[in-house]
């Protein structure tokens, strides 16, 4: 099929606290191409994060298949890097050790090459001089940048991001979006980006997957025809504004089916 990630008729059912089954996802079909930046957007409870966790191999689909490079996902795989909503750095390690933590956690040791790569990543995220600082000494935006660097350490083909900027203030958010685009253009990857922000989705993505809730389904997949590289000027592009209105209507008027 040539896709990097394929979801085929994926259903996910959870058992709620009162024992009754809840359908989180129903018949989700989705294919992601190489080095494509795709955002998942939709109301709360539409299963965006569930899709992410299925691709990450942290959940097994109730029905259907999730494949990466045409191989079904049965457990977490090395091709993937994950960035969560909160930075989840370890407060007792300095920034550099936090970035190399996945190696120490997985293999029990960190070699010189890992440290070298971590230092290079620190430069990439503009925190070259912060390697010896503790996470507590960094701002929220800086911490999230470190978390992104941590997810990039093993140079994964796929980057999964679960509302990574939602805990940041509006100004830092915009800054981080451009930062992410710059990193992504330097190290192209297939990115799945879950967000609540329509503007963020348009600014970053090649395609936007609009999802509907209860049960979670793919309502529509929208191409973003804005040229790259994108900049502050992109935000005032008439195409951007029109697309934002279009998606807002789709997200808000879609009734549960």
């Amino acid at each position: 099929m040539g896709n990097v990630i394929d979801l085929t008729r994926v259903c996910q059912t959870f058992v709620s606290s009162d024992g009754s089954p809840v359908t989180a996802l129903q018949d989700v079909d989705l294919g992601l191409r190489k080095h494509e930046f795709v955002s998942l957007i939709g109301p709360s409870g539409c299963g965006k994060s569930t899709v992410l966790r299925l691709i990450a191999g942290l959940l097994k689909p109730t029905a259907g298949t999730v494949s990466i490079f045409d191989r079904p996902v049965t457990e977490p795989r090395d091709e993937i890097g994950v960035v969560f909503q909160k930075p989840t750095l370890l407060p007792w390690l300095n920034v550099l050790d936090n970035i190399t933590f996945p190696m120490r956690h997985k293999y029990g040791h960190v070699d010189a090459k890992d440290t070298e790569r971590a230092q290079a990543l620190l430069s990439t995220i503009g925190l070259a001089d912060f390697g010896r600082k503790r996470p507590g000494e960094l701002s929220g935006g800086m911490q999230q940048r470190v978390a992104i660097a941590r997810s990039l350490l093993h140079d994964p083909d796929i980057l999964l991001m679960d509302e990574p900027f939602s805990a940041l203030d509006a100004l830092t958010r915009d800054e981080m979006s451009f930062e992410l685009l710059r990193i992504w253009s330097e190290r192209p990857k297939t990115v799945v980006f879950v967000t609540h922000s329509i503007q963020e989705a348009i600014l970053l993505s090649d395609r936007i997957v609009v999802m509907s809730a209860r049960p979670g389904r793919v309502a529509e997949i929208i191409d973003v025809p804005l040229p790259r590289p994108r900049s502050l000027a992109t935000l005032s592009d008439p195409v951007f504004t029109a697309l934002a209105n279009d998606i807002r209507v789709k997200v808000f008027t879609r009734k549960p089916e």
Partner: peptide, 9 residues
């Protein structure tokens, strides 16, 4: 999320 990170590794 940290436990998920651990599991994903």
């Amino acid at each position: 999320e940290l436990l998920e990170l651990s599991r994903s590794l």
